[in-house]
C-alpha cells in the first residue's frame, strides 16, 4: 500500500506541473483555435528570464513565483502581437507551423543568450523533505500542488463568472458572433496568450527549482500536451485534471508494469480515452483538431 501511495503522490507532484502547462495549451486553443507547439519553449524562456532576474536582484526564491507570471504575461503579449496577430485569417495549419518555428527559434536563442550549461535555479527552495502521510515531498512540490489547485479553481471561476471569461468562451464558440456582440476578439487573443504564458512560467519555475534550469526544459512542455488532449483541448480545467491523470498513470505504469513504458503510458491512455470520447474527457463536441 505504501508503494502504491508513493507512486500516486509522486505522480500527482509531477502531474500538477503538467496540469499547469496543459491549462496554458487549452487557454490558447479555447480562445483562438490555435495549438501552440511552442508552449514548452515559452515556459523555458520565462524560467530563464526569471532565474536571471533573481540572480541579478538576489531576491529570494519566492519572488520567482511573483516574477514568473509577470514575465509570462509580458512574453505572451509580445509573442501574440509580433508573431500570432499578423497571422490572423491565415489557415490554422499555417499558424501551427509558425508556433513550431517559434519553438525552434526560442531553443536556439536561449542557448545563444544563456549558454548550454544546466544551472541550479537561484535560491531554489529548501531541500528539506516534508513528510505527509508518511510520504516525503520537497516543499516546492507541495507548493506546486497548492498553486495548481488555486490556478485551476481561479481559471474555472474566471471562465464561468467574469465578463472577460464569458467573452473568451463566446469567442471560442464563434469569433464572428462574439465580434457582433461587441467582444474585442483581438484583446481576447492577447489575454489568452498572456494567461497561458503566465501559467507555463509558473510551472517552469516550480519544475526548475526542484530540478534545474537547462536548455532541455522545454521537453516538460511536450509531456503536458497529452494532458491537454486527455482533458479536452478546449477545456482549461479539464486539462488541469488531465495533467494529474497523466502524471499518476505514468508512475503506476512505471512502478507496476515496466519503467520503459512510463513515457508512452500517457499516449496509450489518450488513445483509449479518445476512442470513447473523441473530444477528451471534458472537451466540447465541436472541437476542430489539428
Amino acid at each position: 500500500m505504501q508503494y502504491f501511495a508513493d507512486l500516486v503522490i509522486s505522480g500527482l507532484a509531477i502531474g500538477a506541473i503538467y496540469g499547469l502547462i496543459g491549462m496554458g495549451y487549452a487557454c490558447i486553443y479555447k480562445a483562438t483555435g490555435v495549438v501552440n507547439f511552442a508552449q514548452g519553449e515559452v515556459m523555458m524562456l520565462i524560467t530563464y528570464v526569471t532565474a536571471s532576474l533573481l540572480t541579478l536582484t538576489t531576491w529570494p526564491f519566492w519572488m520567482g513565483l511573483v516574477l514568473a507570471p509577470a514575465v509570462g504575461i509580458l512574453v505572451g503579449i509580445v509573442v501574440e502581437r509580433v508573431v500570432i496577430r499578423p497571422m490572423i485569417g491565415r489557415p490554422s495549419f499555417a499558424i501551427v507551423m509558425v508556433t513550431i518555428g517559434l519553438a525552434v527559434l526560442m531553443r536556439s536563442l536561449i542557448v545563444l543568450f544563456w549558454g548550454s550549461e544546466p544551472r541550479e535555479f537561484p535560491g531554489r527552495g529548501s531541500e528539506d523533505v516534508i513528510q505527509i502521510l508518511g510520504i516525503g515531498l520537497y516543499p516546492v512540490q507541495v507548493l506546486a500542488f497548492l498553486i495548481f489547485i488555486s490556478a485551476a479553481a481561479a481559471a474555472w471561476a474566471f471562465l464561468r463568472y467574469s465578463r472577460l471569461g464569458i467573452a473568451m468562451r463566446a469567442t471560442a464558440l464563434s469569433e464572428q458572433i462574439a465580434m457582433l456582440m461587441g467582444v474585442d476578439v483581438r484583446r481576447i487573443s492577447g489575454l489568452s496568450w498572456a494567461g497561458a504564458a503566465a501559467l507555463s512560467g509558473l510551472a517552469g519555475v516550480l519544475f526548475a527549482s526542484a530540478a534545474y534550469v537547462g536548455p532541455d526544459l522545454f521537453a516538460v512542455g511536450l509531456k503536458a500536451f497529452p494532458a491537454t488532449i486527455l482533458g479536452g483541448l478546449d477545456a482549461v480545467t479539464g486539462s488541469a485534471f488531465g495533467g494529474l491523470l497523466i502524471g499518476v498513470t505514468e508512475n503506476l505504469v512505471g512502478g507496476y508494469v515496466d519503467s520503459s513504458l512510463k513515457e508512452i503510458a500517457g499516449f496509450v491512455v489518450i488513445i483509449f480515452i479518445l476512442m470513447l470520447r473523441p473530444n477528451g474527457l471534458f472537451g466540447d463536441r465541436d472541437v476542430e483538431r489539428v
Partner: peptide, 17 residues
C-alpha cells in the same frame, strides 16, 4: 535493470521501485 526513455525528466517511479 530499469530502462527509461531517453529524455525522461522525472524518475520518481524508478526510485520508488
Amino acid at each position: 535493470v530499469l530502462r527509461y526513455k531517453r529524455g525522461q525528466k522525472e524518475f520518481s517511479a524508478e526510485i520508488v521501485k
